Simulated assay, not measured.
Amino acid sequence: MAIDKTYATAALAVADIPDGASLAVGGFGLSGNPVQLIEALLAQGAGNLSVVSNNCGVDGWGLGILLEAGRIRKMTSSYVGENREFARRYLCGELELELTPQGTLAEKLRAGGAGIAAFYTRTGVGTQVAEGGLPQRYDGAGNVVQASSPKDVRTFAPGGTAAEYVLEESIVTDFALVHAARGDRHGNLVFNKAARQFSPPAAMAGRICIAQVEELLEPGQIDPDAVHLPGIYVHRIVEVGRNIEKRIEKRTVRPRPAEA
């Protein structure tokens, strides 16, 4: 029997995401943001969401539109510096934040998808990441009302050199939303450049992964050696076309070298 995971529209693909759901969302900066799925979720109306993503988009774009609409209760992120509304809501007590080192966050997602309950890492040892005390929620007066708890720290000696490592639990979410350059009807995905950073582990972490693709292909049209994420991790796929808007988070201009 053929396996066809395609949905006609983004709205249909996200229709059953309920209030209070947890989401893993792909993207690195603004690269690979599943914008059409996010916009469909905004229109769908689900709220009180717990979102795991490298960042929360920017004001008026990506996950930023869900944040501005008050739909996000908690963010688990590693980089939150480009969104003024994010900072306002966090410091005013309207948003819970679990700040996580970037590489650790990627591995927590990947481990969740691989069936690994937890792992030990050197990252965060000797800091509040391991010792606890990172502010997770403020009240309206600027007081910390919720802080991170201490984590288990143990000594291991890989390669013969003893060092301390901190225990990090993996992440599994109800749904995952990702953007890919190409995908086939079986759910095999190919990502483009920086979009490949967080999208595969985010997809793996979701119990139900929903992928938007710029180009939908038939099974067999993607070289198996070119597949970045196998379809076993993808449950729904929707084609959004190649002419979608793609924004740049921050433009920099390289000065021309002085002539000799």
Rank of each mutant, 00 (worst) to 15 (best):
L30R: 01
I17F: 12
R196E: 14
V240R: 02
S22N: 08
V178D: 04
G126C: 00
A162S: 12
A141W: 08
D184W: 04
G133S: 10
P201F: 07
K108E: 00
R71Q: 08
R251I: 01
W61Y: 15
L189T: 07
G124V: 08
R71F: 04
G64W: 00
T173S: 09
T161Q: 13
A205N: 03
G47P: 02
C92H: 07
C209M: 10
V58H: 05
V14G: 09
A10G: 01
C92T: 11
E169M: 03
R110M: 07
L30D: 10
V51M: 05
G20M: 14
L105F: 07
V234N: 06
V190E: 05
G206A: 03
Q44R: 03
L41E: 13
E239N: 05
G45K: 06
D174N: 13
A40L: 04
G140D: 10
H228F: 08
E98N: 12
C92D: 11
S22K: 09
L217N: 03
T127A: 03
I3M: 13
I210Q: 04
S170I: 14
E164S: 14
Q36F: 15
Y7I: 09
L41I: 12
V52M: 01
I38K: 00
F156V: 01
M1W: 04
T173Y: 12
G27S: 10
L12T: 15
Y233I: 02
L99K: 02
Q197F: 12
A147K: 14
V125P: 08
S77Y: 08
L42T: 05
V240P: 10
G81F: 15
N55T: 15
K250R: 15
R256I: 11
G64K: 05
A46V: 10
K246C: 12
T100N: 11
P230L: 00
V178E: 07
I38C: 03
P255T: 11
G142H: 07
Y79K: 00
E245C: 09
E215I: 07
V190M: 06
G220V: 01
T155E: 15
I210N: 03
A106L: 12
G47I: 06
N192L: 13
T161W: 08
A114Q: 15
K246W: 07
G113W: 07
P135N: 05
A117G: 09
E68L: 00
I232G: 12
H228Q: 13
P101N: 02
R196A: 15
G112D: 02
G220Y: 04
L30K: 01
G103S: 06
V52R: 09
E68A: 15
I72D: 01
V234D: 00
L23Y: 08
K5C: 02
N83W: 08
D223E: 06
N33C: 14
V52Y: 08
R254E: 08
V238E: 10
S77H: 02
N55H: 05
